[in-house]
Amino acid sequence: MKKTAPLFLIDFLKVFAALFIIVHHLSSYGQIAEDARIALPGIMTWLFEYGRYAVQIFLVMAGYLAAQSLSRYANQSFSSQHLLKVIFNRYLRLFAPYAVALLVTMLCAYIARFWVNDEYIGQTETLSQFLAHLFFIQGILGLDSISAGAWYVAIDWQLYTVLAIMLISFPRYQAVIWILSILAVCSLLFFNRSSAYEAYFIYFIGAYGLGVLAYLAKHFQNTDVQRLAKSALIMISVIILISSFEQLWLRNILAWAVALMLFVWGNQTYPPAVGFKKTLLNAIVWASPRSYSAFLIHFAFILLANTLYIACDWYLYKSGLLALTLMLSVVICSTVAANYLYRLIELPVSKLKL
């Protein structure tokens, strides 16, 4: 299926998940987060505890979109050179805005260290640490993350690489569905429940695989592949349900629910609208392609906001309203910066391919 028009659910999930992650990080880092709990204790605690679940939305959607992109190679003969080009082009697309965001975050962290002494800022970055981030191996090497979202970019590239190998290497997608389903079940029931695997794709391939299966079950041109992918989705949902009687894992249920939504409504275009509703939909259309850049750059503004809060002695007032105002300022500044990062870096680089 070729994307001929903006798709509402895809765009909405991108914007919603990015915003949710930003407010989750705002509720997690610095004195601003602590003081905001004075005004909204219940909401801020809930965001701190459950905001990270938005990552499941990113993972399922990333799998869905990756399958959409890679399945066009289904009828082509295997070429290792072609496979490497696909993987490298993905790296290039992720790398450019990511590298710029890392540099901006490092600059903001340098400024923050003059006034703020907190664990989330970390020690001064080393060259080896920065290079490890550029090659997406900082988690594997056990190095501290420069930015709050850097780990996800590394995992996304791992997952895309694994999926590219499977979808381009196997001429029959039935084999891919079986392999992917087994990996997904192992991830959901075992690997995803141990922090020892957090730096590797196997920890996240459960949610990612659900997104892949949702796409293949609805849009792949071979009806046999569609039926098998549907069966795999049903099988995994039953396994998730049965395992929930032993221990309830909300992130697994959320991942399956998002996959189901994408299966049912993933190809729906925007509904007709007028007035305020049209303005809101236009805002989603505008924000969707910029969501990746917003995800990358927002932590820099969290650092700056907390630095300003401490340097100006505003923290002495213990004002929840002031803390919430600064949080809103971070969201606004992140949106503006994401627009420039998208237009000047991400968009031009996305057109560069081997």
Rank of each mutant, 00 (worst) to 15 (best):
G30E: 12
S79I: 09
R72E: 10
S71K: 12
A62Y: 00
R52V: 13
H82Y: 07
A36Q: 10
I32H: 06
L59H: 00
A33Y: 03
V60M: 05
G63E: 03
L47A: 08
E34Q: 15
F88W: 11
L84K: 12
R37W: 09
A36M: 14
S80C: 11
I32E: 05
R52I: 14
Q31F: 03
N89W: 01
E49S: 13
S69W: 01
M61P: 00
F88C: 10
I43Q: 12
P41Q: 10
V55S: 03
P41S: 13
S69C: 05
L59N: 02
T45F: 04
I32D: 02
S77P: 14
A74D: 11
L40V: 09
Q81H: 11
A36N: 09
R37S: 07
S69D: 01
N75E: 14
K85A: 10
L65S: 09
I87Y: 05
Q31D: 07
V55C: 02
F48W: 10
S77C: 07
M61V: 14
A39S: 15
V86L: 10
D35K: 06
L40H: 08
Q56T: 09
L70E: 00
A74W: 03
S69F: 00
E49T: 15
G30N: 13
K85Y: 02
I43R: 12
A39V: 13
F48H: 14
T45L: 15
L84Q: 09
Q81D: 05
M61T: 12
Y53G: 06
A54Y: 00
I38G: 08
A62K: 04
D35S: 10
D35F: 06
W46H: 07
R72Y: 03
A66N: 01
Y64A: 07
T45A: 14
I87F: 05
Y73F: 14
G51D: 03
F78V: 04
Y53T: 07
P41L: 13
F78I: 09
S80W: 11
A36W: 07
L70C: 02
Q31M: 14
G30R: 11
Q56F: 05
F58C: 01
G51R: 07
L83T: 04
L83M: 10
V86K: 11
Q56R: 13
F78K: 09
Y50K: 05
S71T: 14
V86N: 06
V60C: 06
S69T: 10
Y73S: 10
N89C: 03
N89V: 04
Y53A: 05
Q31T: 12
H82C: 08
S77Y: 00
Y50L: 08
M61S: 10
L65T: 06
D35A: 07
R52L: 13
S71M: 13
L65D: 01
M61D: 00
E49F: 09
Q76N: 13
F88R: 11
F48E: 12
F48I: 08
L40D: 07
I43A: 15
R52W: 11
Y64S: 01
A54Q: 08
T45C: 07
I57K: 01
A39K: 15
L47P: 06
A62E: 03
Y73P: 08
K85F: 02
L40M: 15
